[in-house]
Design a protein around this nucleic acid. Sequence first.
DNA 1: CTTATTCCTAGTTGTCAAGTAGGAATATAG
DNA 2: CTATATTCCTACTTGACAACTAGGAATAAG
Lengths: 144, 144
Amino acid sequence: MKISTKGRYATKLMLDLATYNTGSPVSLKDVAKRQDISEKYLEQIISSLSKAGMVRSVRGAQGGYLLTKEPKEYTVGEILEVTEGKIATVDCLRDDGYSCDAKNQCVTIRIWEKINDAVKDVVDNITLQDLLDWQAEGADQYVI
Amino acid sequence: MKISTKGRYATKLMLDLATYNTGSPVSLKDVAKRQDISEKYLEQIISSLSKAGMVRSVRGAQGGYLLTKEPKEYTVGEILEVTEGKIATVDCLRDDGYSCDAKNQCVTIRIWEKINDAVKDVVDNITLQDLLDWQAEGADQYVI
DNA sequence: CTTATTCCTAGTTGTCAAGTAGGAATATAG
DNA sequence: CTATATTCCTACTTGACAACTAGGAATAAG
């Protein structure tokens, strides 16, 4: 089980916007350079975030993107959900139509439910502000 | 993020072996029928489990597979690790050589670490015996 | 000897992640 | 008003990998 680059890049992207959250728009070019991610790919990723209303765009020269809320109001869970879709470890947990016909006889599903809950509990309780704080604390203590 | 069929089938397979753990070998044919999984695919899956010493095989007619330990001694975590490989949500967490060069400046990695820990905490604390117990309790209470 | 099984290796097929590519629309600066 | 910087949109590409399928060799039971 993996979290794709899309979700991870989206998180880095949002953190970058939060870090450079001065009031004037931040261009993807800059984000791309700082985070070392293809600008074209970032365009696609931010498109989802923009459609979800999580960022606001300013077109044209000197344009870019801005957060629409305070960093503390974004959870990592939201960001991942918008970019990766529902975080379900297995299909039978999806609530979008598909469902396993043996759901009621299947004991193993309880494992996947527990995993899901545990993951959700983590990502729904980390905000962009937390990431900013961690950054401020200095990453030095996490060097290996 | 997903858990592949391999890991899920392996879990079902092991649970089936635990359920029919009478002392005489259980054939994949029977497991395949009961769990509605391709027998050929099960062969591949159990091969990993067998190489890891988690099951013992008996060849020839009336052959099959047997657990080598008590159900309570198998964790779901082990089963998944053997069949899916290390459960790392992102590559930079793998401890097998590959590592992200920006590990020390990367704040987001702490998110993936926390997710990983949470998942591990779940799967390492569910044993086959737990699954047997859940089965015994009756799945009825989980019907939707 | 026949049949039931595990064991082993090699395909196959489709899907999806992870981008790349190209250009249209829009705004700013000079 | 023109050149430039940016977002916006859609389509394409490429490689990897999940999820099997296929075929047959080895082994044991009856």
